[in-house]
Every structure is written in structure tokens, then in C-alpha cells.
């Protein structure tokens, strides 16, 4: 066996060098072929040295709740447009979620496709937030059940939504803490990160964040922005209602560049 191992190791070394040489010359075609061979050899090597077959370290637990449902749970809690990274964090902290940000990238497109093939066939859709041009805002997810005023994004909305999310998370953390013996570490860390960025939300970095204090601080800042943001959003929502059809209202009006991209696909 050790002979075979030696051979494999030599082969792997050769292939690695060849791939790196090809990459340095920007010869991507050759590199791809060599890489495939390399992976093959590496798998063979793994099989020889490892008692347990190599692969992802732990097999994924049977998923009872779909990614879609987990995102819905988190968004429902947050009750404001949010980025995947926050959704993932909330899902993990409060629902024992298992999703990763990467799984959320194609979500919106899948939802739009499903909606187009059978409109309103599902109880809810995960959809886009709309910019002031009524196009989909980059990287923000919303729920179809929300009123349009909540799903459009004015200049102040990112901040308002951040504060809204902070209040929601603080409230959830307080509730969870009341029921549990020890606060969940992920929830504490999430809340601490938010608290740091709200004036008056935290007292240095050392003490664990106080949910009530975070919520109060967020409400105080929210009061500064609320009036203008509500006005901006109402205006945008009205425009969206009058200008957009069903699909565009949920998933955003296509901009010129996105149309070009879609066609190229």
C-alpha cells in the first residue's frame, strides 16, 4: 500500500505543479483538465490514508424545515427588509437554523419563477425590496405578505430597517432569556453586534448587552428618522402600485442592465 501511496503522492505533486504553472500562464483550459485529474488522485489518496472516507465532516442532519421556511421565519421575526447575513444569524440564534448565506443567493429567482408559472400558488413568497427606481434592491429580502410601504427602500430606510430589526431581535432575545436558563450565545453575540452600532445601545464591549436598553436606544433613534422615512416610503409605494404589474411589484421592475443580463443567460 505504501508504494501506491508514494506513487499517488508523486502524481499529486506533479499535477499540482502543472496546475499552478498553467494558472500562471493563464491557460485556464489546461488547468481545468489537470484539476479534474488532480481531484481524482486526491480522492484516491484520501481513501488510502483515512480510515473514514473523506467528505464533508458531518453528514447534514435531516432537514425538516426547508431553507425557504427558515428564511420566512427569520424575516417574520425581523419584520423589515434584511440582508442574507442577518437572516442567517437570526435563524441560527432563535430557530436553531442551519442555513448558510450561499443558499440564499438563488432564492429570489426561484421564487419569481414559481410565481410566474402559477401566480399566488403559494401562501407566501420571499421577494425583493424595491429601490426608488422600483428595481430590486441589491441583497435585500422581504415577504410578499408585507405592505408595499414596508418593502420599498427610501434613502433613510436602510437605517430605519436596521433599527426595526434591532428592536425585533432585542424583544426576541428578552423573551428567549425569560424562558431559558442561560441566554443562547449566538443570540447574545448578535445583539451585542447591533447594540454597538446604536447610540446609547451598549456600555463598552465587556458587559453582555441588555435587550431592553438596546430596544430603547433603537426606538429613540428611530423617532428621529421615522417621519421622513414614512413619507418617502408612502410616496414610493404609491408609485409602485400605480406603475407595476403583479410580478414586478413582488420582484422589482427590471432595469436595462438586468434585462440585458437575463437575455444573455
Amino acid at each position: 500500500m505504501s508504494d501506491r501511496l508514494d506513487d499517488l503522492e508523486r502524481r499529486i505533486d506533479e499535477l499540482r505543479s502543472a496546475v499552478r504553472r498553467a494558472m500562471r500562464a493563464r491557460d485556464t483550459g489546461t488547468a481545468r483538465v489537470l484539476r479534474a485529474e488532480l481531484r481524482h488522485a486526491e480522492r484516491a489518496w484520501d481513501a488510502l490514508v483515512s480510515t473514514v472516507p473523506a467528505g464533508p465532516p458531518e453528514p447534514p442532519a435531516p432537514r425538516l424545515v426547508t431553507v425557504r421556511e427558515q428564511v420566512h421565519q427569520a424575516l417574520h421575526l425581523l419584520s423589515a427588509p434584511a440582508q442574507p447575513r442577518l437572516i442567517v444569524a437570526v435563524s441560527g440564534a432563535f430557530f436553531g437554523g442551519t442555513i448558510r448565506s450561499a443558499q440564499l443567493t438563488s432564492l429570489r429567482r426561484d421564487e419569481a419563477r414559481s410565481f410566474r408559472s402559477s401566480p399566488y400558488g403559494r401562501p407566501y413568497y420571499l421577494c425583493a425590496a424595491l429601490t426608488d427606481r422600483l428595481s430590486p434592491a441589491r441583497g435585500l429580502l422581504t415577504l410578499s405578505a408585507w405592505p408595499l410601504e414596508r418593502r420599498v427602500i427610501g434613502p433613510l430606510s436602510p437605517r430605519v430597517d436596521f433599527l426595526t430589526c434591532a428592536i425585533a431581535i432585542a424583544t426576541a432575545a428578552a423573551t428567549a432569556a425569560a424562558g431559558a436558563a442561560a441566554p443562547d450565545e449566538r443570540a447574545t453575540r448578535l445583539l451585542a453586534g447591533l447594540a454597538r452600532n446604536i447610540p446609547g445601545g451598549a456600555d463598552g464591549d465587556v458587559a453582555p448587552p441588555d435587550p431592553e436598553r438596546v430596544a430603547a436606544a433603537a426606538r429613540a433613534e428611530l423617532a428621529v428618522h421615522a417621519e421622513r422615512d414614512t413619507r418617502d416610503r408612502a410616496e414610493l409605494a404609491q408609485r409602485a402600485t400605480s406603475q407595476l404589474g403583479d410580478v414586478a411589484r413582488l420582484f422589482g421592475a427590471a432595469t436595462l442592465s438586468t434585462i440585458v443580463k437575463e437575455e444573455a443567460r
Partner: peptide, 22 residues
Amino acid sequence: PGFDAEVLAPAIDSGSPERVTE
């Protein structure tokens, strides 16, 4: 950087400590 891209990153992703070590 070439080693990182072509050897180390795949080894880490493979989850095999032996491969990373080697």
C-alpha cells in the same frame, strides 16, 4: 498565492486534516 488557490483551499474544503497537513 498559487499554492493557496490550487492546493491549500481545496485541501481545507475537503475537510481532510491529513491533506492539509501534507
